[in-house]
């Protein structure tokens, strides 16, 4: 808490810089969305959504640090564990379109 509130440069605290970093990751998510939408094959989309999930975990962790709310890490953990389920579900579905489920 005190570390996040510490002033780094020009009156901006560490929390401000972390928020800017989280905003940067959110902008990157828009770039990853391009691959999820355009991706010529389903494998591209699976990978894109997997990277998006990891990106969301990072955003949530940075937000938890920047806003001084450690409970945000719980949500990040849920995503870290369940994003894997989404990836394997879609990737096994793409084999013969659900024929092997």
């Amino acid at each position: 808490m005190s570390l996040v509130d510490a002033s780094l440069a020009a009156g901006y605290t560490l929390g401000d810089f972390l928020l800017v970093a989280a905003a940067g990751f959110a902008v990157l998510a828009v770039g990853m969305l391009y691959r999820a939408v355009v991706g010529p094959t389903m494998q591209d989309r699976v990978l894109a959504v997997n990277v998006l999930g990891t990106n969301t975990v990072v955003i949530l962790a940075i937000l938890g640090a920047a806003l001084g709310e450690p409970t945000f890490l719980d949500i990040a953990l849920v995503y870290a564990l369940l994003n894997f389920l989404m990836a394997i579900a879609i990737s096994k579905f793409t084999v013969e379109r659900g024929g092997v489920l």
């Binding site: 096994k92 793409t94 659900g98 092997v100």
Partner: peptide, 21 residues
């Protein structure tokens, strides 16, 4: 390695024939 493009629904015989990967 590539999903079937236009097969439509996989009928049950076809599903029996493909090994579970």
């Amino acid at each position: 390695d590539r999903p079937p493009r236009s097969d439509g629904r996989l009928d049950s015989e076809r599903r029996q024939g493909t090994p579970y990967t």
